[in-house]
C-alpha cells in the first residue's frame, strides 16, 4: 500500500487515488507547426525509467484534484508531491 501526501489534503492511502501516467510529457504548443515525430513522442513514446519518476495522480475519492508525485518505480518510495499547476523543476 502506498501512502501519498496530497498537497491539498495531506497523507492519504493509495486507495483514494487513481493514476494518470508520466507527468513530464508536454503537449506540443497550440498554434505552432508540430512535426509527426513530436506528436508521436507526445502520444505514444515513454521513457518509463527504473528509479525516480514524476507522475500524475488524481485524488479521486478525496479533493478530486490532479497532483504530481515523484516516486521511485523500483522501491515505491515517494520523494515529493506537487499541485498540478506547479512546475516539476521547482
Amino acid at each position: 500500500m502506498l501512502y501519498i501526501k496530497c498537497p491539498h489534503c495531506g497523507m492519504r492511502s493509495q486507495n483514494e487515488f487513481s493514476y494518470g501516467g508520466d507527468a513530464s510529457i508536454k503537449r506540443p504548443e497550440l498554434g505552432k507547426e508540430t512535426s509527426n515525430k513530436e506528436w508521436d513522442d507526445f502520444v505514444y513514446n515513454r521513457k518509463s525509467p527504473r528509479g525516480k519518476h514524476w507522475e500524475l495522480w488524481q485524488h479521486l475519492s478525496g479533493c478530486r484534484q490532479w497532483i504530481k508525485v515523484e516516486r521511485d518505480t523500483a522501491t515505491h518510495e515517494i520523494f515529493n508531491t506537487l499541485k498540478a499547476n506547479e512546475d516539476i523543476s521547482t
Binding site: L2, S48, H53, E55, T73, T75
Partner: peptide
C-alpha cells in the same frame, strides 16, 4: 497494479 513499476512484487489493494 496500476502504476509504473519495476518492483516484481505486488500490492494488496
Amino acid at each position: 497494479d496500476g502504476y509504473n513499476s519495476y518492483a516484481q512484487r505486488g500490492n494488496l489493494p
